[in-house]
């Protein structure tokens, strides 16, 4: 555990809590892509199956459980409790365009051809692209509430901090997880355009982020 990894995990947790509380407090999931949230729940489910097979640390186990519970709770809020506010019209990204290639790649490129390893690889690849329905929705409607942009900022920051963690781990312990690193770089690149808009429009401006 190093400072980049810890900051990354905290950033990830903050992002998920921001989104959950936004929906909970406002009793609305307007502007939120339910599809992205289902994909993230799928990411955590397929990655954390090792909860049943290995014990890493209490921290590791607790964080995994928290991520799982919060991701399913968020999906529940969007599709059940506050489904009346769900904007299915604009949440029209075709997720099969992500799931099919990601599944295929997980079978082709993995550390071991076992069910758990293929599912772990699937989760790493899927996480890299899971935000696309949300970014697509923002592009389609042309705007995002500032609280939604804070969520996206922390979610993007998390993987960027993991990149620093991987550089650190490579130099200190020779650790190099090729699948995670390559996917993490791709994932972070997806947020770069958003980071730019976030700094120039949300932080320097006020209220909503609207696209030109």
């Amino acid at each position: 555990m190093n400072i980049f990894r810890l900051a990354g995990d905290v950033s990830h947790l903050v992002a998920i809590i921001i989104l959950f509380l936004k929906i909970w407090k406002s009793k609305s999931c307007a502007g939120i892509s339910g599809k992205s949230q289902v994909l993230f729940a799928l990411v955590f489910t397929s990655r954390y199956l090792d909860l049943f097979t290995v014990f890493i640390s209490a921290y590791n186990t607790i964080m995994k459980l928290v991520f799982l519970v919060l991701s399913y709770a968020t999906v529940y809020l969007i599709y059940m409790r506050f489904r009346g506010s769900y904007d299915s019209e604009n949440d029209s990204f075709r997720v099969e365009f992500l799931l099919v290639p990601v599944t295929g790649l997980a079978f082709l490129e993995n550390y071991a051809f076992t069910p758990l390893e293929i599912l772990w690889t699937f989760s790493i690849f899927l996480e890299a692209v899971a935000i696309m329905p949300q970014l697509f929705m923002i592009t389609k409607t042309g705007e995002a509430e500032s609280i939604t942009t804070h969520y996206l900022f922390f979610l993007g920051l998390y993987r960027a901090l993991y990149l620093a963690n991987w550089v650190w781990r490579y130099h200190t312990e020779g650790f190099f997880d090729q699948i995670a690193v390559v996917s993490g770089v791709v994932q972070t690149i997806f947020y770069c355009d958003f980071f730019y808009l976030y700094v120039t429009r949300v932080l320097r401006g006020s209220g909503k982020m609207s696209l030109p």
């Binding site: 590791n60 964080m63 997880d177 090729q178 699948i179």
Partner: peptide, 10 residues
Amino acid sequence: HALKIPHDEL
């Protein structure tokens, strides 16, 4: 490629 199992990151 480098093998890292079990995965100790989140």
